[in-house]
């Protein structure tokens, strides 16, 4: 039987948000302002995509994994202060404007940990509050449906605002954005989410899911996948497909099973 305490996060779904705050200019700023972020290693674990990322333990007084989750036992309680260690990933991604505030991708194997981390940030970073990235899906759908890009949409989720029984429809395939079904549905639907396939050399592409509130997730076989996801989010930002809002994305998550 597998040892739960040595639970591997690899091969799991990771949920993430992209956050920005004017006082957070570096990972060290983040560690200084947010108590309880401890890198697992002294050096960034990933840098092969031009961004820096850390595998960290985030210490919190509460175990944020839900009861019944196999992850719950992975949050070891420290002796001394009794805080729980939540294994997470943080990447600093550059924005297109090098003078602008960097953005941080915070990822965890459970959305509740992401939500709790955001709530902690909200408390600590007042005046102003942090901002979160939200994808501009209208523009992204238009671009992906009309031009060639480094990534492609292989699933789109459409909301049917006036539907009483059916609220959403997901189209999957090689190019759902240019399908006749999507053309038929376009007048009565609104973009809600997208699954982007990010190519990886010699490996299966990473599937990055994004909803319009700024929640993102992917399945992660190892830390390199996080690097790909962070790189993808950076690309979306530099291509102009990310906006920023104070509204918390994690309040608008559908469920742990997501919207796929």
């Amino acid at each position: 039987m597998a040892d739960e305490t040595s639970f591997s996060f690899d091969g799991r779904r990771y949920s993430a948000v992209v956050v920005s705050h004017q006082t957070l200019r570096s990972f060290d700023d983040l560690r200084t302002r947010v108590d309880g972020i401890e890198p697992v290693r002294a050096r960034p674990t990933l840098d092969d995509e031009g961004h820096t990322a850390w595998r960290v333990d985030w210490l919190s007084r509460q175990n944020h994994y839900p009861y019944g989750s196999t992850l719950r036992k992975s949050a070891r309680q420290q002796r001394g202060d009794g805080r729980y260690r939540h294994r997470c990933l943080i990447a600093a991604i550059a924005s297109a404007d090098s003078a602008a505030t960097p953005r941080f991708v915070f990822a965890s194997p459970h959305i509740r940990v992401v939500g709790a981390w955001c709530a902690t940030l909200e408390d600590l970073l007042d005046h102003p509050r942090p901002q979160y990235a939200v994808p501009r899906l209208d523009a992204l759908f238009h671009a992906l449906g009309t031009s060639s890009t480094a990534y492609k949409a292989t699933q789109i989720t459409l909301q049917i605002p006036s539907g009483v029984d059916v609220e959403k429809v997901a189209l999957t395939g090689k190019s759902p954005l240019i399908s006749s079904l999507r053309a038929t549905l376009a007048p009565v639907t609104r973009p809600y989410a997208v699954r982007l396939e990010m190519p990886r050399e010699g490996r299966r592409p990473l599937r990055l899911h994004l909803d319009r509130h700024g929640n993102c997730w992917w399945h992660q076989a190892n830390d390199r996948a996080f690097g790909v996801a962070a790189h993808a989010l950076a690309s979306l930002g530099s291509d102009g497909y990310l906006g920023f809002t104070h509204d918390l994305p994690t309040k608008r998550i559908v469920s742990e099973d997501g919207f796929s």
Partner: peptide, 15 residues
């Protein structure tokens, strides 16, 4: 009907 209710602030199946 769709245009009247379309709003990106809305969430699908919130808890």
């Amino acid at each position: 009907a769709t245009a009247l209710r379309a709003d990106d602030l809305t969430s699908l199946e919130p808890q």
